[in-house]
Design a protein around this nucleic acid. Sequence first.
DNA 1: CATATCTATGCATGAAGCTGTATACTTCAC
DNA 2: GTGAAGTATACAGCTTCATGCATAGATATG
Lengths: 155, 155
Amino acid sequence: MAKNQRQYKIAKILQSNSVYSQSQLVELLSDEGVVATQATVSRDLDELGAIKVKSAGGQSIYAIPELPKDQSSTQEHLKRVLSDWVVDVVVSSVFVMVRTPPGCAHVVASALDRSQMDGFLGTVAGDDTVLILADESIGGAGLAQKIASLAGIDQ
Amino acid sequence: MAKNQRQYKIAKILQSNSVYSQSQLVELLSDEGVVATQATVSRDLDELGAIKVKSAGGQSIYAIPELPKDQSSTQEHLKRVLSDWVVDVVVSSVFVMVRTPPGCAHVVASALDRSQMDGFLGTVAGDDTVLILADESIGGAGLAQKIASLAGIDQ
DNA sequence: CATATCTATGCATGAAGCTGTATACTTCAC
DNA sequence: GTGAAGTATACAGCTTCATGCATAGATATG
């Protein structure tokens, strides 16, 4: 049972149950054959971006925001994705081209889209290449430097 | 300097140099500021699927096959991608729907496309969902079982 | 065939990631 | 304010992954 799989199950449980506490969630996971402690669950909820919202009954329950915009990527997460998956960064005018191993462009594009990075306007991802548009205030070179730095490819 | 980044550099070096030996490659990498031993390079070349081909001069040089078809995914690699990134597997008729963490569908689809798995016809990948078409000999259920097993989600 | 060169790999080690335990910290109810 | 309940996190330990060292195995050359 990998961590991703457990977190997916947590997301599913929160969608179909009113969960008031982490210990309750530990039990619901256990009912599905997933063993985890409160500590692990606390960390998972944090990574999933779960928050407590007021339910119709007035109590606080856990929920994960649905809109992609609300699932913004933390700097830490972005740095991790970039350092794992970005292998080269090239500039052309207001464009930054990022190379990845085969099949991994979309992971990078997705993380960038959710990062709300300054100077970043948008991406187009292929199989192993992401084309990124920078705004004029920072320019392609400035954004490339930022991305390369996060990816650990200082030049 | 992550492993992916070093392997990308190796691929680039092989494209623009005639590399006869791994010790030569170690030196060329060192010229680019990448420190690695012959042992590491041997493993990298294996993972990159590099082979030795006869050059115009009659000597053997390293090259990486260019066509995606030739970069077929090993069972080991496929298993690893699936266990890391597949969080749920659902069947519908001749379709198998695979769920992944946000942004990771394409990695999974790409690995499946390159795996040449029996009974597998093709994929369509979104952000966190891959739709897979199975052929009738194995059916959606059969293929789902296979994928779930590789992903470590036996049910 | 013998030897030099090249390549692959067993083993040990260190780093990174993840998890549980214990407990510090925070929040809630009375 | 106090105590109970809930949540976060420091620390230790385990697992996995990647790498180098040393050398076994494979290949090329004379």
